[in-house]
């Protein structure tokens, strides 16, 4: 349980760094992004084109593909949901 929490925490931090790095988020540092902050629209203010960067970032860094539109809405909701998706699916792929 503790190990899982640690994995999620590390993934959240890693994703924050990747988002700031790849999305050219001006004046935002990884530590400024809250775990439960809404990523698109209100909140961090990402737009539909930032979704392209996130999808490619997930493909290139974790070998994960997001194809399902409805899933996309849930996965891209916040750093929390994104990290959970990556951790769960990396495990699934490894199994």
């Amino acid at each position: 349980m503790c190990e899982e929490n640690k994995e999620l925490t590390e993934m959240r931090e890693k994703l924050k760094v990747l988002l700031v790095d790849h999305l050219s988020l001006e004046d935002i540092k990884p530590e400024d992004i809250k775990d439960d902050e809404i990523l698109f629209g209100e909140g961090l203010g990402l737009d539909s084109l930032d979704a392209v960067e996130i999808v490619v970032l997930l493909q290139r860094n974790f070998g994960l593909e997001v194809k399902d539109m409805n899933k996309g809405r849930e996965i891209f909701y916040s750093i929390d949901t994104l990290a959970k998706y990556v951790v769960d699916n990396i495990k699934d792929n490894a199994d």
Binding site: F40, L49, A51, V52, V56, M69, F76
Partner: peptide, 15 residues
């Protein structure tokens, strides 16, 4: 007029 302006579907098709 769908989530993310259809970008997820576009990526899938181009890939």
């Amino acid at each position: 007029e769908q989530d993310f302006g259809g970008t997820l579907e576009i990526i899938e098709k181009i890939n």
